[in-house]
Every structure is written in structure tokens, then in C-alpha cells.
Design a protein around this nucleic acid. Structure first.
Lengths: 157, 157
DNA sequence: GTTAGATTGTTGACATGTCAACAATATGGC
DNA sequence: GCCATATTGTTGACATGTCAACAATCTAAC
């Protein structure tokens, strides 16, 4: 007799979550082509749009859920295009303060209205209330995932 | 006066969706380390687990939402480890039929129960009914995204 | 002040992703 | 059969991601 292993009742939802996210990411690549930006580049610029003081590369890596070393090249390329700059971080000579240049600010001012409109179009047919519920559930799922991994790393050194 | 552009009411939900998916993906890397697999490699093996006849590389790229050319290297590395094989596709000499080897099947038989358990743990606190609703909403979001991109590509040739 | 330990950014090796271009092959009119 | 067109997998150039190791620097404890 063969031992069969079957997916649990939430499995389909997990697949759909990953698929939808992948679809959005791939589509956003086409969306941002117009400004010759990759999704990763846009997300980095987007993080720098609010805080006037800029962020360190470590801050950026934490926000973007990516490794420190990945930020080096991202900032390099955006710096070469004149969209961001590396400024000294007062009181810490290890770190950079990455800031939007005026050119980078202008670009984001142009893109953001299009971006916000596009994000709303993507949720067409979903009430704000329901989107809130979905976001809340997904927040819990992310927290569960973190917990599970923390447990895994505690048990396997 | 400065023209301010503000996110719409669904914006936060979109961010949470992308963040949660990224968190799951990153955590799954740690989860699969135990078997020396990357998330991408596991997903490919997972697709090959059900169909005994295997899939072509084009099939795989469609299912994994990735470019054809990306599959070449993925299959190369899995083939080198003896987990998959390339067989002739009867009636089409351009294509390969990628199949699990016995070794690949054994590996998946070992992993899948752990994987299914982990996926359920991730949805702890979410009823099956609610997970279904979330999946349904996300399916709609993916469809909207596809539509929006199709429209974008129709307008910009 | 010194020192041990943590943090920051960079580098190099490599996996994973995109895209354009290519050769080989299928396919569907004609 | 022939031909235009599409599809399949590979390659090379490059962006994006991981990780380990490194130098520089900060921090805290003594």
C-alpha cells in the first residue's frame, strides 16, 4: 500500500496568494517600463519619497525584505542615473544616507499618480472593507510564517 | 501650492499582499535548506510530482510564471543532481519532456508531508471558509491585473 | 582607555530572473 | 510539396537575489 500525502484545506489559498503576488510583480515590470525602472528600483525610490532625511542602506534592506548586499548594486545603478545620492550619515562613518535627488523627486512626482490609480484598478470589485479584511488575514499569515521560521531556526542551529 | 498625490483606499492592502508573499518566499528558502533545494527548485519538482508523463519546459515556464529561458538552467541543475531527467517528446523534436527520476520522486515523497503541514501552520487562526474568501478575492485581483496589463500593451505597441 | 562583540557596506561566487536573437522544428494555408 | 508564421529550447548580456568573508566603525562593559 502506498502512503499518500495530501494538501491541507488551506493549501489552495497559499498557492493563490503566491500566484497573485507574482502576477502583480510581473505586470508592474511592464507598467514601470515606461519610465525605464524595474519594480525593485521603483520600490526603493518609493521608500525614499516620504522621509526627507533619507534612509541608510540597512534601513532599505530591512524595508525591502532583502539582503544588505543587494542594496549596494541597486543604489549604484540609481545613483549612476542621478535619481538618488549617497550622503554622509552624521555620527556614523560606516553608513550612507541615501536620498532622492531633485531629479529623482521629479520622477516620483510624475509616476505616483499613475501608480496609485493602477493600484486601485487592481482591486476593482473589492470593497474597501473587504480589502481591509484580506489585508488583516495576510498580516496574520505573515506573522505565523515568521513564527514558524523562528521556531525552525531555534531547533536547527 | 504643491500638488499632492495620495494613495487610494486599497493601497495598504496591496502592500500587505506583496509583503506577505515575500515573507513566505524568504521563509520557504530556510525551510527547504534542509533538503538543499531553493524555493524555485521545489516548485518545479512539485509541478512534476503529479503528472507521470512529465511536462515540457514551456509548460513549466507557463505554470511557474517565468520566462522559458529561466527553465533551462533550473532543469540543468536539477538534472545534474539526478532529480529530474529530459526525455524525448514523442511527435515534437523541439521539446523535452521533463520528468522526475525515481530519486526525485523519493525526495518529494519525503518532503511533501512536511510541506503540507507547514502550509497549514501558516494559516493558523484563519478558518477554511475565510481562507477561501481571501483566495477568491486574490483571484479577482490577479485577473484585474492581467486585464490592466493587456489594456496597457494594446495601447502602447 | 581598551577591548570584545555587533553593525555597516562592499566584494565575489553563484542562483534566479528578464530580454533579444538564434537554430531547429511544427503547423496551416496554398 | 512549399512557404510564411509560430513555437521550443538555448545562449549571452544583464538585473536582482542569496550568502560568506572582509575592513571599517560603532557600542557597551570593564
Amino acid at each position: 500500500m502506498s502512503e499518500t500525502s495530501t494538501p491541507g484545506p488551506h493549501y489552495a489559498a497559499l498557492l493563490q496568494l503566491l500566484r497573485t503576488s507574482e502576477t502583480i510583480w510581473n505586470s508592474s515590470r511592464i507598467f514601470f517600463e515606461r519610465w525605464e525602472l524595474s519594480p525593485a528600483q521603483f520600490n526603493l525610490l518609493n521608500l525614499l519619497t516620504d522621509p526627507g532625511e533619507g534612509l541608510t542602506q540597512s534601513d532599505l534592506s530591512r524595508e525591502l525584505l532583502t539582503h544588505r548586499s543587494n542594496i549596494t548594486g541597486l543604489v549604484d545603478r540609481l545613483e549612476k542615473r542621478g535619481l538618488v545620492g549617497r550622503r554622509d550619515q552624521a555620527g556614523d562613518r560606516r553608513a550612507w544616507r541615501v536620498v532622492l535627488t531633485p531629479s529623482g523627486k521629479r520622477l516620483m512626482t510624475e509616476i505616483l499618480p499613475h501608480y496609485y490609480r493602477a493600484t486601485e484598478r487592481v482591486w476593482e470589485g473589492v470593497s474597501v472593507r473587504q480589502a481591509g479584511v484580506v489585508a488583516e488575514v495576510l498580516k496574520g499569515v505573515a506573522a505565523n510564517t515568521q513564527d514558524a521560521i523562528a521556531r525552525l531556526e531555534r531547533e536547527n542551529p
